[in-house]
Write a protein that binds this DNA or RNA. Structure first.
Lengths: 234, 234
DNA sequence: AAGTGGTCTAGACCACTCC
DNA sequence: GAGTGGTCTAGACCACTTA
């Protein structure tokens, strides 16, 4: 590899490492050369090798541990990144016209399954909002959200007839962590009615809970109209 | 910020940047200080600032362009990473016993929708495999896969009665790129029969196509048993 | 044309782990 | 205790953009 090369970039180092892993020059479970050794072999600084190997590790193809070195992963895990934009953005990015309608807004005690998610006592009342998002006038998704307005007092100033909770929260409330689930469900009567489909039709559902300092701030259930697909690249 | 500090780490710089964005010290759309300025202000090297800002950019909270500088993103996009392990691994990681059965293996011309995905001429024949994966003896997912065995000749040596195409391919075939979709569908009669559910039950479906040098190598459709959830952290 | 982020280098120290 | 990856630094050059 010592031809009339340009300068080695970390991308080129990464490509070389990926090549060796793909061709089983370095087989699953094998240790790979240390950063120092690779730097010498490939004619670059150790930090360049470090940058490349970090990228390979992020892809799940090698595992790195201090003192133990780097090993080719035994169980290569595919890591996929999903972009989750604000719903309005998602619709407009597809060239469709965005529409939004508030369905209901009140305070209520969440049903048991929601309480479990929120670690909420059986008598605590949350802000409950239901709304719909449209693409080109057609129902796109139902937003069913519970908000802890004791933790987010500014919420009382929000006008959810004009801006969706989805968008308001993203723009207003800093969040720390959360979890997301994706699942398939049968549309219940009310969902079907709102989405303009038949009861029992399969619908794609996203459940998301957002936390701050370990405490749930809000949990939302998004029920997408039949036919919705989430796509991404590997 | 010039108290008796430890040395500034890129994580601490990142935390400070995130704090300023959250508190709207730097509002959406605003330009943020240049790397040089931040390095001076926070008392560290520019490369440390660079490392921190790159991390913030990966999270989708700022946009960086040469010459134009870094700006707080107008539409913060949540980025979520999904881990997609080999099916066997996924089941065993949950503490369940993995089971696998080959249903059918033959050569056939794919139906039109699959041909479209594969950019396959109307008369080309592909290797078609159907198989099932079990968790603790219960049907977990149907694997319905088409493989281009002209591009993957080694496939003739694989024994898909003993190892699933899913696992064999991950372990054997290097891939370059691909795409994944997630959707909800109604179980058709055959799927329902295999999964032990009712026809029309909502099922979570994953469609994945893998390419090498732009050419599709394989496309697979995974039909999960009702109740399946994909979970991840933000 | 000029300014900003992207990257490389060489050297250094440190933190974590495994022996 | 020793070796490996993790990170910081100071300086440099480059690539890309936009003014």
């Amino acid at each position: 590899m010592k031809r009339s090369e340009q300068k080695a970039t970390w991308q080129s180092i990464e490509a070389e490492v990926l090549r060796r892993i793909r061709l089983r020059e370095w087989a699953p479970g094998d240790p790979i050369p240390h950063e120092d050794a690779l730097a010498r072999e490939l004619g670059c600084a150790r930090s360049t090798v470090n940058r490349a190997l970090r990228s390979v590790a992020e892809k799940g193809l090698i595992e790195r541990r201090r003192r133990a070195g780097s090993h080719v992963a035994l169980n290569p895990v595919r890591r996929v990144t999903l972009n989750i934009p604000v719903l309005r953005q998602e619709i407009e990015d597809r060239g469709a016209t965005y529409g939004y309608v508030l369905i209901s807004e009140d305070h209520a005690v969440p049903p048991a399954p929601i309480r479990a998610i929120l670690h909420s006592p059986p008598d605590a009342s949350w802000l409950h909002i239901r709304a719909m998002h449209f693409a080109d006038g057609k129902p796109h998704v139902i937003e069913d959200r519970w908000i802890d307005d004791t933790q987010i007092p500014q919420v009382s100033a929000a006008d959810f007839a004009a801006i969706s909770p989805n968008e308001w929260l993203v723009r207003t409330v800093p969040f720390e962590s959360g979890d997301i689930s994706f699942l398939a469900e049968a549309a219940n009567g009310e969902d079907a009615n709102l989405l303009g489909c038949m009861t029992g039709d399969p619908v794609f559902v996203t459940e998301r809970t957002t936390r701050q300092g370990g405490r749930p701030l809000t949990t939302v259930r998004l029920v997408f109209a039949p036919g919705h697909k989430v796509k991404t690249q590997i």
